[in-house]
Amino acid sequence: MTADRMVGMFGGGSGEFTPPVQSPTALEAIGLAKRYRGMWALRDCSLSVPAGRVVALVGPNGAGKSTFLHLVAGLIAPTRGSVRVFGEPVGQRAAALARVAFLAQDKPLYDGFTVAEMLRFGHHLNPGWDDALARQRLAELDIPLNRKVGKLSGGQQAQVALSVAVAKRPDLLVMDEPLANLDPVARHDVMRSLMAAVAETQMTVVLSSHVVSDLTNACDWLVVLNRGQVQISGEVDELLATHRMLSGPAELADGVAARMPVISDSRSERQADLLARTGPGTPLHDPRWSSSGVNLEELVLAYLRRPDTTSLPRPTLTIS
């Protein structure tokens, strides 16, 4: 317990500039599976995310994102496998609950409560509650404390829900589709206010979306869930650096494809465009081929179209 706390403290301050090897693991899932009425919502899901990251969890509808996040928040128990947050198993124990804040998909709040009463709710139910932080955030957003929550706009409700989650001072903030049902301005505001909170508190954040473009600027770690399985889990910069769009003559495409994993392969009569994972050992010398970078959206889309391909972290030496 004490050791875990210390690891958490070191990890909390590390931020995104610390090399992953030194960061403790914020979130770890091992063989996680969940079955509902005979249907597997999530099967054999294993991943590990270092502390201090802002994790984008993307995947099509029904990929198991919500199930995964509910498991992390301890709202449901896995059918198989386990989830650990900062080394401790999650679940309905007070100590585990205090470390994770969860923002559910519809950002539920008590509609009849005033904003001030929502803060009082947070204060009564959380020993680590940071009332000053909550009040400061709401004051910056010009949200009146005496207004009933049900009378606020959707964007303001999202901000109140986010403030309640952040003022809990969690080590891990889990958000299920936080931007769904928000207009573009509110999306932008919520995202900006989230990033400000992350900078201030150095918590690890996991947020899901089925719209990749919502998350591209904010997140530094990408997890792609597809059909209940983890397809990608890795640092965004590294993923972008190791995936290239290769364009060249169609007749040579097979030769290139044989040398490296190809995620997407579109060929016309003359030209082939291959999105490939290019390890450091596989340079492309042929001048007839051109190589260009990919963006996150293209990358995710390519993987989602090929559910059988995966990009998971290479086994690395870690000192533990």
Binding site: Q92, A94, F102, D106, P108, G122, N126, A161
Partner: peptide
């Protein structure tokens, strides 16, 4: 009905309490 159990059950108070 309102989904607020997801809010309350993820505060630092156990569901049992």
């Amino acid at each position: 009905e309102h989904g607020t159990h997801q809010l309350t059950w993820t505060q630092s108070v156990t569901r049992r309490r």
